[in-house]
């Protein structure tokens, strides 16, 4: 019963996406590579992969407000590295782009969404950590970022690392790992929280906060947009392995399969291609993809 309802909703959403895609931008600003779906792949019966491949559609949670990783365009369709990775994985299940329903996940609701089965997987700059691993399974990492600090050009406060933040107004997004890190480990800093990183950037540009902090790769995007106004401290003080969240299971079959798929994407070059088309806009050098971990103790690779 529940399944049919979800399927109906997903179908309707997919139809809406098709419509949106038809009216999409012809000037093709995003040079994302075309993803071709596998034709009727075979999976062992009873597995999540078989179910998804059978359904021919899936629901994926991603950020809609994260430049480079997942940012909704004017039609409301997300674009970015996370989105490309998700499309590539879906393609291995024989699911085409048109049959993916994108659901916006904000930092605060990723675990609940997975636990409640509201999404089939989450690809949303989702840092693998112990606490989250208790309630969801993590495949990957497929990228490793590090928390860094963005300061006004010339670094007027002389910030070299998180220790220098004491007494300064530091902006980050409520519910995000970087914000929690500052709150618990650098309590001297005056943490200001917003709903989206762009709000923080604006507050930084007009002097309402002294600096902002989150993962370096996101901050790099802002530096490339405003090279005269802001600069990156360039001293990452954490390691943020981005994982792919899937619902917790006993046998970890789906999680392992996502890991295998990631490794295939590393080998055939599509990971690098996706990177260059998205994050590559601000980071010239395409890094080596990180080694995927085990689904039992993720990130421990």
């Amino acid at each position: 019963m529940m399944r049919t309802r979800v399927a109906l909703v997903a179908g309707a959403a997919a139809a809406a996406l098709v419509l949106a895609a038809c009216g999409g931008d012809e000037d093709g600003e995003t040079a994302a590579p075309d993803v071709t779906a596998e034709e009727s792949p075979e999976f062992e019966a009873g597995t999540t992969m078989a179910e998804l491949a059978e359904a021919g559609q899936m629901t994926i949670g991603t950020k809609f407000d994260q430049p480079l990783f997942g940012l909704a365009d004017l039609e409301g369709v997300p674009q970015g590295f996370d989105v490309e990775i998700a499309k590539l994985i879906a393609a291995q299940l024989g699911i085409t782009e048109d049959n993916i329903e994108w659901v916006e996940t904000v930092s605060a609701n990723r675990e609940p969404f997975l636990e409640q089965g509201r999404v089939d997987m989450v690809v949303a700059t989702y840092t693998i950590n112990e606490e989250r691993d208790k309630v969801v399974d993590f495949a990957g990492p497929y990228y490793v970022a590090g928390q860094d600090i963005l300061v006004p050009a010339g670094n007027p406060d002389g910030v070299e690392g998180p220790e220098d933040l004491a007494g300064l107004r530091v902006c980050s997004v409520s519910g995000s790992t970087p914000a929690e890190n500052i709150r618990t480990n650098y309590a001297e800093a005056n943490l200001v929280e917003f709903d989206a990183y762009t709000d923080c950037l604006e507050a930084l540009l007009n002097g309402q906060v002294d600096n902002m902090t989150t993962d370096n790769v996101i901050l790099s995007g802002y530096v490339s947009e405003n090279p005269d106004e802001v600069e990156l401290v360039g001293n990452p003080f954490t390691e943020e392995p981005y994982g792919i969240g899937v619902p917790e299971s006993e046998d970890k079959v789906f999680c392992e399969w996502v890991n295998d798929t990631l490794n295939e994407l590393y080998e055939d070059g599509s990971w690098a291609e996706a990177f260059e088309a998205t994050v590559g806009e601000v980071i010239e050098e395409t890094p080596e993809p990180p080694a995927t971990g085990s689904c039992e103790t993720p990130g421990a690779a």
Partner: peptide, 19 residues
């Protein structure tokens, strides 16, 4: 939602920590 830490923010921080 606009950079002020008040009652609802406090509750939100706790929700994030103790889902």
């Amino acid at each position: 939602a606009f950079g002020v830490f008040e009652g609802t923010s406090a509750s939100n921080v706790l929700i994030n920590r103790f889902g």
